[in-house]
């Protein structure tokens, strides 16, 4: 009985982090991202300043939020009182990760559902 009550109280959501196919989101157009062709400059021109930059710009990350009629759009993550020095994920649901090669051409990318 007790276990049943606890199970009910717990709900059933998991929300584990996982990658999603880049073309699975209606309205999201990332067709300009082509491995071996898209340059870092073009990616930044299309997406704006990244929210994260790693290894001297070899890896760029963008926090993305769902936008009506546009699929996803980049969003700034702000520090929240609750999270202290961590940036909150209030609006951001996805993380777009771009990895470039030594010639600054896109090597691979992924879209991760973070919450």
């Amino acid at each position: 009985m007790g276990a049943a009550v606890l199970a009910l109280l717990a709900g059933c959501s998991t929300h584990d982090v996982h990658t999603v196919p880049i073309d699975s989101l209606e309205g999201a157009d990332f067709s300009f991202l082509k491995p071996g062709q898209t340059s870092r400059e073009e990616a930044v021109r299309r997406l704006g300043d990244p929210t994260g930059k790693f290894q001297g710009g070899v890896i760029l990350t963008y926090s993305m939020e769902p936008a009506p009629y546009h699929g996803l759009k980049p969003v700034r993550r702000e520090p929240s009182l609750r999270n202290g020095p961590f940036l909150g994920w209030e609006e951001a649901v996805y993380s777009l990760v771009l990895v470039f090669d030594s010639e600054s051409l896109l090597r691979e990318f992924s879209l991760v559902k973070v919450r």
């Binding site: 990658t19 929210t51 990350t61 963008y62 999270n83 990760v97």
Partner: peptide, 9 residues
């Protein structure tokens, strides 16, 4: 990063 996304810190 490709698997887990942008880190929090």
């Amino acid at each position: 990063l490709l698997r887990l996304g942008e880190p929090d810190w």
